[in-house]
């Protein structure tokens, strides 16, 4: 059997062409394949990382952004431990669609799912959404925030490692450190009793948000 202590599912969503597939490829394969075709349905990658001395298996679901795949991609929200909502900082419409995505997330995902807002393509010169706007939006909607560039490999590793660390924290605080807990953590069950960690979601957020956004110019106040 494979040797890992936790298994986390991470689902990437967001409009078509914001760079979800590139983020995943950059992280899992270290590649930036230009001229990527549109994703069909969902794609699936696995990467095992080591965080705090623990082997963590990350199951990354890369979804298609196009509308016609929505009913496929929606079905993956429920079991996600973390949802990465991606927009393109050089494309206003992808930012404007965020509320629609949040509505979907609210409808289908576990209410305690870890949500991360990611502004991708920081390598581009034609920025349309200032960092601060993205940050504000994230804060308003209880999400963590990070700007990345899959092309320049900027913040990509950090994004996934911070998510892994945060999920471990939640799983541990919930129940010792048994790996069954990790699997059980995703079960939405009976309101608040079994969910993603019993420690205050807010506190967790401020921790991670600070952590995620502390580097460089895009530092935030935390949750």
């Amino acid at each position: 059997m494979e040797d890992y202590k936790f298994l986390f599912k991470i689902v990437l969503v967001g409009n078509a062409g914001v760079g979800k597939t590139c983020l995943v490829r950059r992280f899992t394969q270290g590649l930036f394949p230009p001229g990527q075709g549109a994703t069909i349905g969902v794609d699936f990658m696995i990467k095992t990382v080591e965080v705090e001395g623990e082997k963590i298996k990350l199951q990354i679901w890369d979804t298609a952004g196009q509308e016609r795949f929505r009913s496929i991609t929606q079905s993956y929200y429920r079991s996600a431990h973390a949802l990465i909502l991606v927009y393109d900082i050089s494309c206003q419409p992808t930012f404007d669609c965020l509320p629609d995505w949040l509505r979907e997330i609210q409808e289908y995902a576990n209410s305690k799912v870890l949500k991360i807002l990611v502004g991708n393509k920081t390598d581009r010169d034609d920025r349309e959404i200032p960092t601060q706007i993205g940050e504000e939006f994230a804060k308003q909607h209880d999400m963590y925030f990070l700007e990345t560039s899959a092309k320049e490999a900027e913040n990509v590793e950090r994004l996934f490692y911070e998510i892994a660390a945060e999920l471990i924290g939640q799983a541990r605080s919930k129940d010792g450190s048994s790996s069954a807990a990790a699997a059980a953590a995703q079960r939405q069950s009976e309101g608040s009793s079994i969910g993603l960690g019993s420690f205050s979601a807010k506190a967790a957020q401020s921790n991670c948000c600070g952590g995620l956004a502390s580097g460089g110019s895009n530092s935030s106040q935390g949750g």
Partner: peptide, 16 residues
């Protein structure tokens, strides 16, 4: 396969 996976997911959601 995509469709099958989605339906299995929906079944799990429905049960849960």
């Amino acid at each position: 396969i995509n469709g099958t996976c989605a339906v299995i997911n929906n079944v799990a959601a429905c049960l849960d």
